[in-house]
Design a protein around this nucleic acid. Structure first.
Lengths: 331, 331
DNA sequence: GCTAGCAGTCTATCGAGTCGAGTGCTGAGG
DNA sequence: CCTCAGCACTCGACTCGATAGACTGCTAGC
């Protein structure tokens, strides 16, 4: 545990470093706080903080830079999480005015969050896991290809093509369609009801395959929306850092894993190596789940440099996730 | 017009610069060619080439760098467009093995192209404009919200939500659904057939609104797939160049405009400012349309630095667009 | 028309020297 | 025991001058 003064010093070092991106010296800390101690005292404490692993000195005669541990202490002790009112109003307005498909809403939410924070933003939606099927239809595309189309209660559509070995008549397709629809409608896609027997072995087999294909496609339904990837570029000064991060951001699977992982560990913020992904060592992630009708159905987050404006990012993520949940609960 | 030797010199300068990213001197040109002239002669020609606008000298006592005009001459006079056989085989294999939805196919095609060239790749699909409707269904989502779902002959789904003023019974939704389906099925989404009159003014009005909404959504169907955006990072050495380019790549509308623009002007390659977009001044674009059954239904392209390996990129784009068209024509 | 040779130009690099920011330590004072 | 002014020290950043090297343009001879 840190005594109060050291904690204050650590806080100011982090804040200053976030602001200036330059190593922070004892003089700068003395100037930036209202503390009535001299820079010499601060120097002693900073040396101690370095020993304890919270700060790092790039070289003698340079100021200090926070370590991941330093940032960690900082975010664990943030008291005031507040967004300037103009910002919160922007968010509320955004969710009041937005109309249209769920997909667009989520994409635009990522855009909003990225805009507010100036980092890359991610929205992950698995509300589809718990949505119920409103309609199912099997549509014949080509002589031996059919497409199963599922409409879910949240307006999302899931589909999967099914290869048919031999020609199947339109009438048979229709009856398979009805049978599968019967066992899906009203249920979650992953938990279909019993499949009504059609009587013809060929068709029953096909119906089962269709059902398996369609409910199997449910796994792909973790929809991911990334926006503002370009913004992370300005946070780094080495081109290859930028490339590493962008490469990760392009792999949506990795992004999803990182975010769910962080949430599973009960964290809201993952700093540097805490992300668990080596190319993100210079990055931090701030996440929050969002809820619809009390149930967690997705998560949103931002990804930026470890030298991130945590209070602002945490506040933005919190407000947006709250408002997004509210908006989605309204339908 | 350039005499043969100057042309050869320009070619080598471009090739060397593409390879090394360093200004190319007369000595390097002499060493890289089989020409039996001395560096002094080459010097004279290079000075002339600079006067004519094909080369640029960053400063006295530096080698020369191609201008956009120099690249233009180079690409206009590329003779052998050939991909190493191993590469072409990779492409053919790729299209033989790939299965599944059109969307995944196109996304993976972008991935393939990016992989081959090491630049960002773009695939634009407007095959949906000419696809015919296989099925239409109106699904009720909430008391006053319904979703029109269109399944097209290429397996693509288009949808649009429709707000209903008042409660509409399930039976009425079904009859609207049938009416709209009747006038859409078998037609292109943009050219529906006549709408069957239901007799009830309220429902007819609603049916028209649904039809308008659904065929209006067709405009959004220009599907764009971008892959390998991260790769462009390594092509530049200034972080803000990277950011400018990435910002453009994130705006799919701009990307589509640039690519269709280039094709409309009858070009296959746009170099630097030829792209018509200011942030892409340091970039070049190589595009090709792809055809299904003889009809152009989309385009693919790569985006990289002006210092691009044009022969390789042009060859890759050509081969991939050809194979993609062939694959899609097979169904 | 070509080219060897040469003088001239400009960059990149290196070392020396200086500046300044910031440190750690010490010793005096509360 | 804590605080702090003072001081010597360290080390990166910047400047300057000199040097080396990469090219060039020009000239004069073949």
């Amino acid at each position: 545990m840190l005594d109060e003064r050291k904690a204050a010093i650590l806080r100011t070092v982090v804040k200053e470093y976030i602001k200036t991106a330059q190593p922070v010296g004892s003089g700068a800390v003395a100037a930036a706080t209202t503390m009535s101690v001299s820079s010499a005292t601060i120097r002693n404490d900073m040396a101690a903080l370095e020993n304890e692993g919270f700060l790092h000195q790039p070289h003698t005669s340079a100021g200090r830079v926070p370590t991941d541990l330093g940032y960690r202490y900082f975010v664990d002790n943030i008291s005031e999480i507040e967004l300037p009112e103009t910002e919160s109003i922007k968010v509320v307005d955004f969710f009041q005015q937005i109309r249209g498909e769920l997909e667009h809403l989520l994409k635009d939410t990522a855009g909003l969050l990225s805009n507010m924070t100036d980092y890359a933003a991610v929205v992950i939606d698995h509300s589809t896991d718990s949505a119920t099927v409103r309609s199912f239809q099997l549509v014949s595309l080509a002589p031996t290809v059919a497409l199963g189309v599922v409409v879910l209660s949240n307006g999302v559509i899931s589909k999967d093509t099914v290869q048919l070995q031999s020609d199947v008549s339109e009438a048979d397709i229709a009856s398979i369609s009805r049978a599968v629809a019967g066992c899906l409608e009203g249920h979650a896609l992953t938990e279909p009801g019993p499949l009504r027997i059609l009587g013809e072995p060929d068709l029953d087999l096909l119906a089962e395959r269709v059902l398996a294909a369609v409910s199997g496609a449910a796994g792909e339904l973790d929809h991911v929306y990334v926006d503002g990837a370009a913004r992370v570029a300005s946070s780094f000064d080495a081109v290859d850092s930028v490339q590493r991060v962008l490469t990760i951001l392009e792999q949506q699977l990795v992004v999803v894993n990182v975010m769910t992982d962080v949430l599973d560990r009960g964290l809201r913020v993952a700093i540097g190596s805490e992300t668990g992904v080596e190319p993100l060592e210079e990055c931090s992630v701030v996440v929050a789940p969002f809820q619809v009708d009390g149930e967690e159905v997705g998560s949103i987050g931002v990804l930026g440099p470890t030298r991130m404006n945590y209070p602002q990012a945490i506040a933005a993520v919190a407000v947006v996730s709250g408002q997004l949940g509210r908006r989605l609960s309204e339908g």
